[in-house]
Amino acid sequence: METTTRGGTGLAIPVLVLVSGIVATIGAFLGSGVLGGTPIQFAAGGWLNEDSTPLAPAKGAFRIWSLIYLGLLAYSVWQLLPAQRRSARQQGLRPWAAAAMLLNVAWIWVVQAGWLGLSLAVIVVLLAVLARIFVLLGRGRPEGTADAIITDGTFGLYFGWVTIATVANTSAVLGAAGFEGFGMPVALATAVLVAAAVVGVATAWRSGGRLAPVLALSWGLAWISVGRLDGGLVSPGTAVAAGICAAVVLIAGVVLRLRRGRRTLPA
């Protein structure tokens, strides 16, 4: 049953969300270097490249952004519909959704400006905003299949991916500062990967097995494994650890999903 509230049908905030979605998508497209300029992976001294640090995912991982941006655009339009303007669930979510989209484009342009340290601060704030969205969405069930896919699915993928992207960004900042893992880079990388897996399992447990964040996080971990098996920074130990962590997160999410029942859960 759809949750509605009176007095919440104004257009100002929904239009702000739409504009934020458009700005985020265009900003990402321009900032990626597709039309010229420096590709994002080579900006900021190249520290976000796939071979820059032991925790950098291979470039195939970033295909997930196409799905996330498509979802954000769909959400930006969908939340403008009259029924969604009356939804208490969407009213609570909109300011956070707009902030998440604008922070994403801010991160891209901070990197393009070469401010790697500031990029870490931005992505940490983005992760916090997405965590808040995750909590808000967990307080109630989706208002239908479209809501489950467009809202919970999109922001679940976004949250899961930014979790592992924050790990990679932190590794890049430390690498740029000359940190070499106390002489034990594989052990330290493994510890960080296990911590990320713990976060993924905890997220799955807390949400009763929502698949979207689990899929995005395990996707990122798997591509870290791929990156350490090929390219300019090969590390079999890190690759095995990342692969195991990806499998653990994915299996935990699927098991929890099956235990709670598909009919009772959003994406």
Rank of each mutant, 00 (worst) to 15 (best):
E2Y: 04
T4K: 13
R6K: 01
P14S: 08
P14A: 09
L16H: 00
L16Y: 07
V17Y: 10
L18G: 10
S20H: 05
S20G: 08
G21W: 03
I22Y: 00
A24L: 06
I26C: 07
G27Q: 03
A28W: 02
L30E: 08
G33Q: 04
G36K: 03
T38F: 06
T38K: 12
P39R: 04
F42M: 11
A43R: 04
A43Q: 11
G45T: 12
G46E: 14
L48Q: 09
T53H: 07
L55C: 10
L55G: 01
L55R: 08
L55Y: 09
K59L: 05
K59R: 15
G60K: 00
R63P: 00
W65I: 05
S66F: 14
I68Q: 06
G71M: 05
L73W: 11
W78Y: 15
L80Q: 09
L81S: 13
R86W: 03
Q90T: 15
P95V: 10
W96P: 06
A98I: 10
A99N: 14
L102I: 05
V105P: 13
A106S: 13
V110L: 09
V110E: 08
Q112A: 07
W115D: 12
W115I: 10
G117R: 14
G117Q: 13
L120Y: 13
V122Q: 07
I123A: 06
L126I: 05
L126T: 00
A128E: 00
V129E: 10
L130R: 13
A131F: 08
F134Y: 14
F134T: 14
F134A: 13
P142Q: 03
P142W: 02
G144H: 14
G144V: 06
T145G: 00
A146T: 15
A148V: 03
T154K: 03
T154I: 08
G156T: 02
Y158M: 04
W161K: 12
W161I: 10
A165R: 00
A168H: 00
L174Y: 02
L174A: 01
G175A: 04
A176R: 05
F179V: 08
E180P: 00
G183Y: 01
A187Y: 01
L188K: 00
A189C: 05
A189K: 05
T190M: 08
L193I: 02
L193C: 07
A195F: 04
A195K: 09
A197I: 02
G200I: 02
G200K: 06
A202E: 14
W205C: 00
G209C: 04
A212W: 07
L217E: 07
L217W: 07
W219L: 04
G220K: 01
W223M: 02
I224M: 09
I224G: 07
L229D: 07
G231D: 03
G231P: 11
G232E: 11
V234P: 00
V234A: 03
P236D: 10
P236E: 01
G237Y: 10
A242C: 12
G243T: 10
G243Y: 10
I244A: 15
I244G: 11
C245I: 09
A247V: 15
V248A: 11
L250G: 12
L250A: 14
G253S: 12
G253N: 12
V254P: 09
V255G: 10
V255S: 13
R259C: 01
G261S: 13
R262H: 12
T264R: 15
L265C: 03
P266R: 03
